[in-house]
């Protein structure tokens, strides 16, 4: 069943249709939110907010809008709000930024201690480089790299133009090239 049909059923109170949407998108939305806010616990909270908002505002959804784009837009806004709140409350997870905890406990790792350290250091460096990007560059980069969205879809999710997305990705690549010099050289 198409996303639009599912949403129309959700609007009529069909819980099973809502569950199908959650099942279909929870991985992608959680992935984006976690990468955006920088830690799994916050990422899961934000992803939950996204689906909760979708349910709460289900009657506002218009079939003209692509559901995935609609969800990504909510996810980006919610993630940005979470980061801003955290900055305001000074609750940045230094433990996480140091890269002390594995991102995904189930992820396969190299058994050699020096290789594990190298992997974690690399991960930590990359995370910091991505977190330091300006908000819009970071959004465009995450949607392109990890969600594999087209420029048009990114533009729609960010409420901007395709040429602006092109420019954001160009600048993001240039900035990362400088900040990831130790990793890529």
């Amino acid at each position: 069943m198409q996303d639009t049909d599912l949403m129309l059923r959700v609007q009529k109170g069909d819980e099973a249709a809502f569950n199908k949407i959650v099942e279909k998108y929870q991985g992608r939305i959680l992935d984006l939110c976690t990468r955006y806010v920088g830690n799994p616990a916050d990422g899961e909270e934000v992803a939950m907010d996204v689906f909760f908002q979708l349910y709460r505002t289900r009657l506002d959804y218009r079939p003209e809008a692509k559901l995935s784009t609609y969800l990504y837009r909510i996810a980006v806004n919610r993630s940005l709000n979470r980061i801003r709140d955290r900055k305001r409350r000074r609750l940045v997870s230094f433990e996480w930024l140091r890269g002390d905890r594995p991102f995904d406990p189930g992820a396969p790792e190299d058994d050699r201690p020096d290789a594990r350290l190298e992997t974690k250091e690399r991960e930590s460096l990359v995370r910091r480089a991505v977190d330091r990007l300006p908000e819009k560059q970071k959004t465009a980069l995450l949607l392109r790299k990890y969600e594999d969205l087209s420029y048009e879809e990114i533009a729609s999710a960010m409420g901007t133009t395709v040429s602006a997305v092109e420019s954001l990705l160009f600048r993001a690549r240039e900035t990362l090239k400088k900040n990831l010099r130790p990793v890529i050289s």
């Binding site: 990468r35 990422g43 689906f51 991505v130």
Partner: peptide
């Protein structure tokens, strides 16, 4: 090379409690 380096950030998976909490 930058694009490949970004693969260092692993994917996240929802916890088993996610659906129930939602």
């Amino acid at each position: 090379a930058v694009w490949r380096a970004l693969d260092a950030l692993p994917a996240a998976a929802p916890s088993p409690a996610f659906r129930g909490r939602l």
